[in-house]
Nucleic acid binder design. Sequence first.
DNA 1: GGAATAGTGTCTATTAGACATTATTCC
DNA 2: GGAATAATGTCTAATAGACACTATTCC
Lengths: 236, 236
Amino acid sequence: MSQVLKMDRPLVSVDTVIFTVHEQSLQVLLVRRPEVATDPYPAMWALPGGFVDTTRDANLESCARRKLRDKTGIDAPYLEQLGSWGSATRDPRGWSTTHVYFALLAHASLTPGGNAIDTQWVAQGPQRLRERLAFDHAELLSAALARLRAKVEYTSLPLYLMGPEFTLSELQKTYEIVLARALEKKAFRTRISSAQILEPVPRMKSGSTRPAQLFRVKSRRKAHTFARPFGSAAAP
Amino acid sequence: MSQVLKMDRPLVSVDTVIFTVHEQSLQVLLVRRPEVATDPYPAMWALPGGFVDTTRDANLESCARRKLRDKTGIDAPYLEQLGSWGSATRDPRGWSTTHVYFALLAHASLTPGGNAIDTQWVAQGPQRLRERLAFDHAELLSAALARLRAKVEYTSLPLYLMGPEFTLSELQKTYEIVLARALEKKAFRTRISSAQILEPVPRMKSGSTRPAQLFRVKSRRKAHTFARPFGSAAAP
DNA sequence: GGAATAGTGTCTATTAGACATTATTCC
DNA sequence: GGAATAATGTCTAATAGACACTATTCC
């Protein structure tokens, strides 16, 4: 029975899709693979990740958090498992599996600079998904984007993309950037308000026009689920 | 760089949570582990699954389908990845990962008998989750049950639990069994009807009371997503 | 007729959407 | 005042829930 233990074991890695919103676009962190001929896909861009280290990682999630800290220097306020992929062909070195996580973080929380040489933030427009990425990472990225958009339709997930204080217009703009479509202002505000997940801070955001109330999240604990997705009422 | 290939590799397995509805209850298939002292958790009940066979399985999903066929003799009409678990401690033999799938099938599609000695269907009431299962399978089962219930709130997934022809009352009953709560008849029928996913067959189900129209699924392709979950309107 | 289940009609409450209106700032 | 954005008011349409009502079968 236990000769299964002597069977060939697949490679096991963890990859993380790290999203942020910056400069009016949804961006994803990519890292450049080492330019070593013995490694597959040398010098190509890939999702941050790597093999599980059975001597250091207690479990998959802490492995993901470790790699996230290495690349961004911060603990992601939101980290969710997306799923796992595994096949005989996805890695030329042999049967391999990867456990994919996706993370959301506020761009403001990032330390400027960082390992700028071998990492980049890439805007996720419809056309950029054709980006040539190592392994099956384009597929993983597509799946993460689909999951993110699906969840943003009916949850408060974009709060994790905001800084500590923000206006309702800024929050709506973040939703619109992720969903790539405009939302109706009144309906948006009614939803957010009735969810009771924000509280005003005694401060306004001033610009060249009417100042806006600043809000913060009541509890960073977990995302709120709305009863209906955006736009579930029928069209006129 | 490629010394990672010489690092210890975790064990990689696939487990499947197979749901069906039978005799007014939601049931899960369990298999008894072999009574071999060298194997962990001998003679205990566990989810059907096992190690990936890198010489036979092309990818994770086909591995899950293979094990599903072995246990039930059929191709599951619905198979979805639930997620993956991995840690240093979940298997006493070492760092291990498992990729968990969940399947839905109509009880009528099962061949009676089967390997009845070492498999059993277990009803999933609130109390039965305390069932002592091998490894962390109680946790995996809880997660699958939570995912199933969450999805049943806003999708047509229970159609995969139905036989080829059924009445609307039978379908509603299946929803109610999975969700463990009653649904309102009119609202249920309006939803199903407006989703246009069923078509009547020219046949009635007769009993000792008024005959009911039989329906079948228009397309087995994929589940329908309702705009709102059940019960999202406010209470009076 | 009575019991039981199938199926429909009708009313209310909620809320997304559309869009108009008012409010506040800077120039 | 005018431009720009913030914030709110109001009306409509869709639909879930509640529940009463009708329809059809067997006894």
